[in-house]
Structures are given as C-alpha cells and as structure tokens.
Nucleic acid binder design. Sequence first.
DNA 1: CACGGGAAGTTTATCGGTAAAACGCGGAGC
DNA 2: GCTCCGCGTTTTACCGATAAACTTCCCGTG
Lengths: 333, 333
Amino acid sequence: MVTMEDVARLAGVSKMTVSNVVNNRAGVSEPVRRRVLEAIRRSGYRVNVSARTLKSGRTGVIGLAVPDVEAAYFGHLASHVIAEARRRGFHVAIEESGANAGGEADAVTRSRTLQFDGLILSAVALDRLEEPADAHYPLVMLGEQDFGGRFDHVAMPNEEGTHAATAHLADQGCRRIAIVTGGSLEGVNMVSRRYRGYRAALAERGLDADPPLLFVLDDMSMEAGRAAADRLADSGLGVDGVVAVTDTVALGLLRGLADRGLRVPGDVRVAGFDDVPPAAYAVPSLTTVAPDHRWMAAKAVELVVRRIAAPLRPTGRYVAPFQLVVRESSAAG
Amino acid sequence: MVTMEDVARLAGVSKMTVSNVVNNRAGVSEPVRRRVLEAIRRSGYRVNVSARTLKSGRTGVIGLAVPDVEAAYFGHLASHVIAEARRRGFHVAIEESGANAGGEADAVTRSRTLQFDGLILSAVALDRLEEPADAHYPLVMLGEQDFGGRFDHVAMPNEEGTHAATAHLADQGCRRIAIVTGGSLEGVNMVSRRYRGYRAALAERGLDADPPLLFVLDDMSMEAGRAAADRLADSGLGVDGVVAVTDTVALGLLRGLADRGLRVPGDVRVAGFDDVPPAAYAVPSLTTVAPDHRWMAAKAVELVVRRIAAPLRPTGRYVAPFQLVVRESSAAG
DNA sequence: CACGGGAAGTTTATCGGTAAAACGCGGAGC
DNA sequence: GCTCCGCGTTTTACCGATAAACTTCCCGTG
C-alpha cells in the first residue's frame, strides 16, 4: 500500500504538505502543489480512510437502516437518499434491520460501531432506545415510528393519506368501504395512524365503519393481500371499496379479487398507499397515496447532516407532502 | 469516547489484555476475562473500528455494488447476500453504481477508498477495468458481465434461461415468437446472451426468427415494456408468443397488451426473466425464468471471502441453477 | 534440585493520517 | 541595520487498536 510518506518522498516534501494538498488546504505554493499532485498520480496513492477517521473522528458515511431491502417502497427512498447525501459529500451505507425491534436496535449499535457519522433509521417496530449512550447520536427517524420527539422525525402522511384515499372512494360512490391492514392497531404506529385517517373520513361522511369492515392480516405481504380477497368475498358485507394499508397488500388484493371473479373497479374499488412502481402498471392500475419520497429523502439527509454538525439542537417533526394518484382501480362506475 | 485504555484501567489490567478479551483470543484466565467484560459493560466501551482497521488492514465489510437499488430483482439478491455475509462474520455495505460504466468503475474505486475488504460487483455496462492497481483487489462479478475470466464470476443462466422459456412457449403452441429486449446486442453481455438462447431454441424447432421478431427497446423499464406492446400490436407480424428480457419489461408489456385489448394468454403468451415478487401476483400471473438467487448470493459471498483470504488463487465461473416457473401468462390455449 | 516449557500478562513498536506548534526566510518599516 | 511579520513548509505529538516480542510465574520431570 502506498502511503503519504511515499508520496512525500517522491515529491521531495513532507507528508504534512501532501496532506494539505490532498485536502485542498490553503498555504501550498502552486509549483509544490503540482509536484505533489503529479507524485500522487504516478504512485497511485489513495488516502487511508481509517487513519483519517482515527484522527478526525469522522467517516463521512451516513447509515440508512431499512426494515427489509426487498420491500418495494424502500428502493425509491434509498436511491434519493444516496443522491442527496452525495451532493453533500457523504457516502451512504445501507443496512437491513429486519422488521423487528431487536434488529432495529442492533442497527443503531452497528451504525455506531461502524462509526457512521449519523443514521437514518426507518423503523417499524422499535419504539424506544435502551442505551442512554445513544441519546445524542445523530439519528433521524424516517417513516413510521417516532420516539416521542427525542429524535428528528420525517413522517409519512399516514392519517392524511388514508383520509384522502377513503374520501376519494366515497366520492366515487362507495358506501361500504373496508380497510385491509396488517400488524397491530395498538399504540401509535403506522397502522393505527392509517386506520385513524380512514375512520375520520368515514365519520365525516356519516358512513359505516363497523368493526367487520376492518380486516387485519398477519403481515403486510402480497400473499396476505391475496388471502384478504377471500375474506372480503366471503364476508357477505357488501364491500364496494377497499383501502389497503400498502401498495404491496393492494397488489396482492387485486390478484386475489381477480381469482374470485370480482371486477375492479366494477364490483369493488381499491386504493393503496406508497405508489410503488408496479402500481402504475398493474392491471387494473392502482389508485394510491403517493408520498413525496424525494422530499422525504432530502429532508432526512438534511436533518442528519445538520445534526452531525450540531448534535444538541432541538428536534423537529416533518410530515411529507403527498398526492392522491387516481388510476383505474377507483374509476367511477 | 471511552477507549481500551480506560477499560484497562478500570479492570486493572493492560489494554492488550482487554484487546484479547474483546477478540476472544486465548490466554486470558476466567476471572480476568470476567473482570474485563464487567468493565466493558460498565463503561459502555465499543471498539474503534478505524483504529483496528488501521492496524490490521481489515474492515470486515464487503461491498455490494448494484446498478440501481430500485431495480426489483436486486432486493432479493441483496437480502441473501447480507444474510450469508453475516453468517461468515462480515458486514455488507450496499452501493449504487448507476447502470453505466463510469459509475461502475467508480464503485470499485469507492470500495477501495472505503476500504471494503472485497467487492461483489453486479455490473451491467463495465467490461474492463482501467486501473492495473485493481487487478488483485478481491472482486467478484455477479450477474452479467465477466471480465474475460480476470475475476471470479457468478453468472445468470442467460442463454439457458431464455432457451427454456422460448422452448416452453413453442411447446404451448406458439409459432411466431418475438423477443423484446433493451440495450445492445453487440459484444458479449446479458442481452446478447439471452438473445442467443432464444435463437437457439427457435432454430432447434425450425421456427422463424426473422429480424422483425426482434424488438429492441431504449431501456429495460416498465414503461419501455408497455410501449413495446404497441409496436407488437401494430407490427402485423402475427406474434403469438413473447419472450421478455426481464420481468420488469414483461410486466410493462402485460399492461400495454391489456391497453391494446390483446388477451394473455389467449392471443399472446408471455414469458419473463428473474421471477421478481410481483410476477406471481400480476394479472395474469407471469411465467418466468427463476434463477436461484439464494444460490447466487451464497456463491458470491463464498468466493469473495475466499479471495480475501487468498487473493491469488485462480478464478472461476459459476452459472446459477434456475427453474422455469410456469404461470397463467403462458397457459395452453 | 536444576531446568525446560507453557500459560497469563505486559511492553514495545507501529499502522497512516492530521491539528497545532515551530521554523526559516525574504521583505516592509523605522 | 535591526526588528517584526507572514507565508510556505516542516516537526511534533497524538488518535486507538494490535502483532510480536518479552517477562513472570508455576509445574512437571529427570
């Protein structure tokens, strides 16, 4: 491995001067700078990040921990986070947390161990951190969970989104609107927030929200969505509209409804949440709540970078803007 | 920050002993080991990875560079790579290369700069490395490109897969089988390999492979697939079967065919490649070539780990096994 | 009873950078 | 002619861990 020392010898200067050139610091004369750059080129030198980090305490890497790299909506987000971070001179390391509290806590620990300068954590399960030592680590919550305001939080428009979707279905003429969701309605989380938005929209319009119109799945997979179609079809509730908690569930549901011979939007109208890429190309294409992922990514990066610079400033909560994208699955009868 | 020195003082031993405990090295008595562990717990100590790396030259991180974290098939792979690497005591850092040669070369540079111990590179565009300095960096090519055997390579069953898909369509009764692809047929790459498999299957059965049955798209997006449906429908070629170069293209195509009122599999049968999750839930569900992603991930990790240990051993090429998953889109008439 | 050998710990010398202080030197000011 | 200044560069002193060499001390053996 070629070190600064080698470059310095080659250029006939001290290694401190090489360091100054590498980091574009002032106080190096033009001829010397050129000599050093030439020596760097000739020798194929690269800085040793470990050595730099050891001395400076900064790695220039931001972690992005997501529940599951397979999840469709994550890719969108990740790619914007990477782009935004690069603009600000940071690298992004993507970590998988597994969609459970233990894995998410581990992600924080790993992030500190690997010395990421900060972490953007998209948690779905974790609702508090044990380690008081983590209290001032630059951490930005992205998505569902917030930790009671202890960290910066970029939130999804959960209530607002399902409210809009539900209202839209009602406007299209639906009268018996079900909600299909997974996970727990206990506590304050993504699912309970989305459920609340749905309830509020129904209440405003004086529509039913019988408990039977709530279908709770084991998880939020496509397969669960597909299975939900059977439960809907067999329920005898006369459901004519469905709000699905995510597009993944909605896409599975569309598939399941097709299997049961129910026509969308003829018999049932469907709306999803996230606007994942396949939503636009499904048959029928899926009406969905489209949060502004680019905005969320940019905000999260901005917040984490700001917090790296100033670990103690007060935290804030920011809700992403969204659009309701109306497509075939909710077309008027 | 609490250092080994602090822990050592607290436990009344030298910091070398602390190091030995932290790394589970032999030669520490049970009582001392317990004292040290207790001191670590009490002080909240964590190793400083930079310091360790600086001295040892190893980071314990494997890079995984993919063209585009948004691409559907990547998530699958990534999540298996992460799991397999963890089993072997490595972390994985996911990097985005952008689907172009410059970005892919950068990914190699970044990987070295960030001192990943090795890199799994899923390249689509790059076909040689400029830097001779990179010649012995532990690098495993995953997917399409190989660099003329200069690196270990875990390959997709490109020819074998489209051969099987094409043969299957023919067996289902298709006589005018088109192929829809994107990118360049020049050189040896994923597209040309898949095209060759298609040609071979047609030739074996004495079916047409007129150049017009080849539809080349600008890229391999869903939108391009959708647009291809128009070209197919307007071609007047009587196409009754389509092999799509990827599931993403195939899903767009299904959507486009629906727009044109063409029934799948009634009027046209369709097969894709990759078996991404939405393929099983599309309407109609998509027949597709399913490479064994878990096998590929495990192989790639095994190879990179082995090469980290022995940078000079001869390289190998390994083709992933696959299954043809037959679904509705190619059902017999 | 002297001696070889291993187990348990400690010391020493680095790994490759960087902040901060020290240095050398030519020119401005009096 | 002497002091002072500031620019460009070098020196010094770490950052926190670890491999390798070294010290103790204890035990078994001939």
